[in-house]
């Protein structure tokens, strides 16, 4: 047999407790938000690493990456014949389409794409959300260094490889 009105009293107690508990709201424009590592703010491009393999563009679920390129002959001194090289002409990401899945960054084999935590790039015109390769390159400066390895986690591939080679020799 419960006391009638106990539930009502409990409700009042809950709200009163919340009232006297300090609120943890961050006043965003005044106070910079504390973003967790690996926040998905904007995608940054390291242009030198890009080989125009088009993997990112093809894997993108909403097709928001536009890539144009042309081939260039590079004469390498000492080589028998000139090599061909892809030159990136255009690398645009349309952030009005992007859904921040991060697949492009996952599939990039040459570490040309990175997550940056910057998120304040709203525009008045939706067309301005199309970031070209220069703008994407500017975001590189905001990419945080990779988090340190978890001391209790598995060692990285490179480390195991080095250790194996050392033990083999």
């Amino acid at each position: 047999m419960s006391i009638p009105g106990a539930g009502l009293g409990k409700g009042l107690a809950v709200t009163l407790k919340t009232l006297v508990t300090p609120s943890t709201t961050q006043q965003y424009p005044d106070v910079a938000p504390e973003l967790p590592p690996r926040s998905r703010g904007v995608i940054a491009l390291r242009e030198e690493n890009c080989t125009v393999c088009m993997l990112c563009s093809r894997e993108c679920p909403d097709w928001c990456i536009y890539i144009d390129s042309h081939k260039e002959e590079v004469v390498v001194p000492g080589a028998a014949r000139p090599r061909q090289r892809n030159v990136l002409d255009r690398f645009d990401i349309d952030f009005s389409l992007c859904m921040y899945c991060g697949i492009c960054i996952e599939v990039c084999p040459f570490d040309a794409l990175y997550w940056s935590p910057e998120f304040e790039y709203a525009e008045y015109d939706i067309r301005d959300l199309m970031h070209d390769k220069d703008r994407l390159g500017e975001w590189m400066a905001t990419v945080p260094p990779p988090p340190p390895h978890d001391p209790l986690g598995e060692p990285s591939k490179e480390e195991t490889a080095v250790a194996k080679r050392a033990s083999a020799s």
Partner: peptide, 13 residues
């Protein structure tokens, strides 16, 4: 303000 704080918000600031 009271309603906001009872809902763990800050209310108008």
């Amino acid at each position: 303000k009271v309603m906001a704080h009872m809902q763990a918000r800050l209310g108008p600031m």
